[in-house]
Amino acid sequence: MENALYTYDPIIDRKPIHWPGDARVAFYVGLNVEHFLFGRPSTSLNGATSALVPDPLNHGWRDYGTRVGFWRVMECLDRHGVRASVLLNSSVCDHYPQIIQAGTARDWAWVAHGRTNSVLPSGMSEDEERAELAAMVATIEKATGRRPQGWMGPALNETPRTPALLAELGLSYVLDWTCDDQPFRLNVPGMLSVPYTVEVNDLGLFTTYGMAGPDFLQLVKDQFDQLYADSATSGRVMALALHPFVIGQAFRAKYLDQALAYIAGHPGVWLTTSDDIAAHYANTMT
């Protein structure tokens, strides 16, 4: 009750959600496609070298994602008919245009994800944040031909003003608040929260918890099975958060392939995007 952004609303008290085609689970892949500044400490595999310039160990690990891992993950998504919801640093548009071309050809959803994951949007004034968000959205719209509808902050970072400023720009949902298995309305007119995950997320599972591929596969299956059971009376959302420099490593890729095959092989699963989840909820739930 202390959070002014949204109201406490336990899942047992809500109207049932009905997904298209009477699906039980709306499943999407949140594919983090990010740009990291050279010489700036960022997401690291080994903190011992993260402050060095250059830092070949960590920068090279991150760079593997855009050079190799992304393309391996893309082929896997294609095999199972999954359109990615790309959590896109706007700097990717300038540095890796081939990625934008590939995603546009596949009608992927583009979710604004800051300018770069080397900088968090904290410490700005309201006018500075408004201008920064507007520039990011404009860059993505120009590169993809589509204005982003959703937002996830770098490291899921927001200021107290961010949702309202995004609404001014015409965006309709955020992924930062990972507190639910269903979308819900924020106390900002026109803005939704759509479920994302920091738990079923390759970055934490493999680098923080040290999971192996078979463990990842079992965890994804367990998450899906429980949500599928929960959805008997009201639809649920399952997000799978991926980073090409993590899951795109050669020795992990087959476990993603098996996980997607398991989910896509079930009846009553809507393989979709975060954009389409938000739009369906907004149009059907009053």
Rank of each mutant, 00 (worst) to 15 (best):
M1W: 04
M1V: 02
A4S: 11
L5M: 14
L5I: 14
T7Y: 00
Y8E: 15
I11A: 14
P16T: 03
I17A: 04
G21R: 08
R24D: 01
V25G: 05
Y28R: 11
V29K: 11
V33P: 01
H35L: 05
F36D: 07
S42P: 05
S42L: 03
T43Q: 13
S44H: 13
S50G: 00
A51D: 15
V53I: 13
P56R: 07
P56I: 07
L57M: 06
L57S: 01
N58P: 05
R62Y: 01
D63F: 00
Y64I: 02
R67F: 12
R67M: 13
W71L: 10
D78S: 07
V86P: 01
V86Y: 03
L87F: 07
L87P: 05
S90Y: 04
D94M: 06
Q101N: 09
Q101G: 00
A102G: 06
G103D: 10
G103T: 06
W110R: 09
V111Y: 04
G114F: 05
N117P: 00
L120T: 07
S122R: 11
M124T: 10
S125Q: 04
D127M: 07
E128I: 01
E132L: 03
L133C: 04
A134I: 02
R146K: 14
R147S: 14
G153T: 04
A155P: 02
N157G: 10
E158L: 09
T159Y: 03
P160C: 01
P163C: 08
L165F: 02
L166T: 03
L166V: 02
L169P: 03
G170N: 12
D176W: 02
W177I: 06
T178V: 15
C179S: 10
Q182D: 02
P183Q: 12
R185E: 11
N187G: 01
P189L: 06
S193A: 15
Y196V: 02
N201E: 12
D202C: 09
L203A: 13
G204W: 09
T208S: 12
T208M: 12
Y209D: 11
Y209H: 15
Y209I: 00
G210V: 01
A212G: 09
G213E: 07
G213Y: 13
P214H: 06
F216H: 14
Q218G: 01
Q218R: 14
V220K: 10
K221I: 09
Q223P: 00
F224S: 10
D225K: 05
D225S: 11
L227M: 13
T233L: 09
R236S: 04
L240N: 09
L242D: 08
P244N: 08
A250H: 13
F251H: 15
R252E: 00
R252H: 10
A253Q: 15
Y255K: 13
D257N: 13
Q258D: 15
A264M: 04
A264C: 11
H266Q: 15
G268C: 12
G268I: 05
V269Q: 03
V269P: 05
L271R: 15
T272D: 05
S274Q: 10
S274T: 14
D275G: 08
D275Y: 10
D275A: 09
D276V: 03
A282Y: 06
N283C: 07
T284Y: 04
M285P: 00
M285A: 00
